[in-house]
Amino acid sequence: MTVHDKNAEAYWKANLRLIIGSLIIWALVSYGFGIIFRPLLAGIAIGGTDLGFWFAQQGSIITFIILIFFYAWKMNKLDKAYGLDEE
């Protein structure tokens, strides 16, 4: 079916907003905390090193998992709210 109505457009916009928000967090924990801003976090000690090291080796991975599950949950709700789910 082709979907051209306002409803579909609103759904797509909501999806894009969600993606952009998620990708900002995605970039912040890896490129931000893990790499570029590591010197700024150097004061926060954790197990013999600093927070930036933790984000680069563990924190970013854990955040990625949370992000995907959050996105999947939120999108499945959006699918239903806009009546665009598969059933």
């Binding site: 993606i19 998620s22 990708l23 995605w26 890896s30 893990g34 680069a56 080796q57 970013s60 991975i61 990625f64 992000l67 995907i68 996105y71 999947a72």
Partner: peptide
Amino acid sequence: LMGWTGGYVLLAML
């Protein structure tokens, strides 16, 4: 570590 896991976020959303 970051590179080979972060790609799944792109895969799931994009």
